[in-house]
């Protein structure tokens, strides 16, 4: 609480300086991955962000060979989209781009790799809460790693993209939930995908 009060005070007294020093905390919830899905014409693009906890079971920097093997295996799994997402066959989708990598959780303040919009998360410290509700924010040096996967498909029949399946949950046993945000021609929406209902219906 104290740093926030101080920040408020600082913002009142030293408003012009505020722009030079910003403190931010992104949310990071174990067990919950986020998916952003956009359909424009024939193109469907998906961005999946998963906490390291869900995919490999730890979030510290991998140091032992066993840990490094796990990270590698996770990235290899993510690189094959059929391990993560199942598009309807009728849509006739072909993969045009795939990307999978791990954001390490080291949080230097001057860490400024802004070359891609998607990489901004690691520049900020992350608030951390577990799925079961025992929120506890790590104040410093909390290493939260996050896997990021991106898939872009070109679909011959994009109107057939109605229900998407998620084999993701079979591949990664610690994953509980995906919070999906999507935009399609008919508008935007949000959905919760979980182990028992491992599909997303686009309307």
């Amino acid at each position: 609480m104290k740093p926030i009060r101080f920040a408020l005070l600082a913002s009142l007294t030293a408003a012009p300086l505020w722009a030079q020093e910003t403190r931010e905390m992104d949310a990071h919830v174990h067990g919950v991955s986020t998916l952003e899905l956009a359909v424009e014409g024939e193109i469907i693009e998906m961005n999946l962000m998963s906490p390291g906890m869900d995919l490999v079971g730890f979030e510290y920097a991998a140091s032992t060979d066993a840990d490094k093997d796990k990270v590698e295996a996770a990235i290899r799994t993510l690189l094959l989209p059929e391990n993560v997402i199942a598009l309807p066959k009728a849509a006739g989708c072909r993969l045009t781009e795939v990307l999978a990598h791990l954001h390490a959780g080291d949080h230097d303040d001057d860490h400024d790799d802004d070359q891609d919009d998607d990489h901004d998360q690691d520049a900020a410290t992350e608030a951390h809460s577990h799925d079961d509700g025992d929120d506890h924010a790590h104040t410093e040096g909390a290493a939260h790693s996050e896997f990021h996967a991106r898939y872009i498909f070109a679909c011959a029949q994009p109107q057939e993209l109605t229900t998407l399946g998620f084999p993701f949950f079979e591949r990664f046993e610690n994953a509980h939930e995906i919070e999906a945000h999507y935009v399609t021609a008919t508008g935007a929406g949000a959905a919760e995908i979980n182990r028992s209902v491992a599909k997303l219906t686009l309307d």
Partner: peptide, 17 residues
């Protein structure tokens, strides 16, 4: 393009100023 919605949203949400 709808493909840019999330990128722009993130840029705005991370807008430092």
């Amino acid at each position: 393009s709808r493909l840019q919605v999330f990128g722009l949203q993130r840029w705005i949400n991370d807008y430092p100023e």
